[in-house]
Design a protein around this nucleic acid. Structure first.
Lengths: 343, 343
DNA sequence: TCGGGTATGGAAAACGTTTTCCAGACCTTA
DNA sequence: TAAGGTCTGGAAAACGTTTTCCATACCCGA
């Protein structure tokens, strides 16, 4: 690959001049010279080596994303949102799988530091333990977190408590009194907050919190399926279930059907996230929509602000929105979204 | 951040010695000295700067992945498979969105070249046009492609033709004669091959190819939904549909239900890929499974082989497997998988 | 005591850029 | 014509490593 010295030699100038031309430096260079250099650059297809450039400038235009698992559609959407903004801002993105484990987080951060990543976006899993916290702090002024965390980094999050409460209120409004909850068991603030929202809404409506109706899931369809099965088999069973994400809700619906319950008549189910497939499910899933891509995008915008030293808000909370579909009500569009539908 | 000179000064040695110690160089260094250096390394939490290292060694332990869109679960699984292998082999991964467009591909490759990525894995979209081909060729010996492409790079792929044929034969075996097909319209070899497999199987079974029963989709649920609608509305309609991926199959099933057809009784549907959710759908989706993560993993293994100069097979085709579920047959497990089930 | 090997460590070049001086040529003005 | 400014360009340092030589000290056998 051509390097700057090749260009300089061929154009009969010094590397200084070449550098000035390709970087549009304010230092003046004669138009004729500039043209000569540019034509050689084109001819040799020269691109400055980013390693050398980054080494000198202490800036790589690269950021790292720390997520537990890209095959979870939630994180895939987050990443997509981040990339959309990153591309425009000229940043490349390197992906780090943490599996949600501290060890993975630590390894990833060290790696990003070695590679001189300009910044880091952290999403999923929990930040805990002295080591994690201390090496993360070392990156101060370069980290944005997604979700609520016990750290003082700039953060983007959804209103998880509010969203869960919305879901519960919707069910109560439909007459449900026994409402189950399938949550996360990873100790993340996300699962915590959604559970809290559920409890709050129950309390505010004078309904008791019944521990028997709460199950710990692990965010995937299978665990939703298994947890719903145990919720439904007893004599005393909930008539509705709020699931902490859509994937588990899909599993729960499958379990309900297998147990002979029809949804929503015998069991209403509400999901969380509004992943792309949720409206195609049968029945279409009532869910608490959170603007996943927007959250990703906002986190990247925040990081760009952070890195460029410009002003920006250090905390952004996105509201959630309950999308009522048929997993809780038949013909919801008639009752809610579209009053003009013939009746 | 501590650098090698800091360590050297504090340990009273030259940077040469420090470098030797941290890289376990074969050049001998006195055990006492080594210990002294290592303790300073720990104390200062020194990690060698990867930019400087990469600049000198012409090796960055970084590879790039080119995909159209990470929010498509198929690509998410591919990436996951790649990462699993990359992590073990010590490689970092940078993600490039191409949107399936040549312009995006070109931009991405230039970027990876600038950043001195050691290699590239290309998946999705088509390689076409002189420019793309020529810059890709420049990276020769560093590229692995996923899918069949008109280039001579090492490649990993699934048996798309065979898989589509399997699906069609299954439907014919169930008595279907009018079988529709919803394919891709992006000109990719994947959509081409799946269509070809469909046609071949029809021909081999003496069934006519009916252009009216073929629709171009764009891989997402919505297009499956729309295309199925047009397939089903005429008087002359297929009794079964093969969809070129699961996402479109989901959409097709929704369309069928809305049109008043029950699946599989009135319309049988077969998908392709076996994405994680397909067994949770209602009805559970009969689909041609392809081992997506394995394909990703194999491509990375191939790339590692390529980069390390060791021997490896330059072409790997994964077989597909038809998973019969209820979108084509009621109680398939009784008829196929598990004859011991009480009847 | 000498010759030659081994053990250990360092100096300096090289990787490919950007940027800070510095310098010469030319022009303008008095 | 001299003084000073404006254009234009280059030399060299710096970024943080690895690696190739080279150098010294020590030891061993003869």
């Amino acid at each position: 690959m051509a390097k700057i010295t090749d260009v300089a030699r061929k154009a009969n100038v010094s590397i200084t001049t070449v550098s000035r031309v390709i970087n549009n430096n304010s230092h003046k260079v004669h138009p004729a010279t500039r043209e000569r250099v540019l034509s050689v650059v084109r001819e040799l297809d020269f691109r400055p080596n980013a390693l050398a450039k980054g080494l000198h400038m202490k800036k790589t235009l690269t950021i790292g994303i720390l997520i537990p698992d890209i095959s979870n559609p939630y994180y895939a959407e987050i990443v997509r949102g981040i990339q959309n903004v990153a591309d425009k801002a000229g940043y490349s993105v390197t992906l780090q799988n943490t599996d949600g484990k501290q060890e993975g987080i630590i390894r990833s951060i060290y790696l990003l530091r070695e590679k001189s990543a300009d910044g880091v976006i952290f999403s999923g899993g929990i930040i805990t333990g002295y080591e994690t916290l201390s090496i993360l702090r070392e990156l101060k002024e370069r980290v944005v977190v997604i979700g609520r965390h016990e750290v003082d980094f700039p953060a983007v999050m959804a209103d998880n408590m509010g969203g869960a409460a919305q879901a519960v209120r919707h069910l109560i409004g439909l007459g449900h009194r026994e409402i189950g909850f399938i949550g996360g068991s990873d100790g993340s603030t996300t699962s915590l907050d959604r559970l809290t929202g559920y409890r709050n809404a129950l309390a505010q409506n004078g309904l008791p919190f019944n521990e028997k109706f709460v199950r710990p899931g692990s965010w995937n369809p299978k665990s939703g399926y298994l947890m719903a099965k145990t919720l439904l088999k007893g004599k005393e069973r909930p008539t509705a279930i709020v699931s902490a994400n859509d994937q588990m809700a899909f599993g729960a619906i499958k379990a309900a059907k297998e147990a002979g319950f029809s949804v929503p008549e015998d069991l209403a189910v509400v999901g969380f996230d509004n992943v792309p497939l949720s409206s195609y499910f049968d029945p279409p899933l009532t869910t608490v929509e959170i603007p996943i891509q927007d959250i990703g995008a906002a986190s990247m915008k925040m990081l760009v602000g952070l890195l460029s030293g410009s002003k920006f808000e250090k905390r952004k909370v996105f509201p959630t929105k309950l999308l009522v579909r048929e997993s809780t009500v038949r013909n919801p569009q008639i009752r809610f979204d579209n009053p003009k539908v013939p009746r």
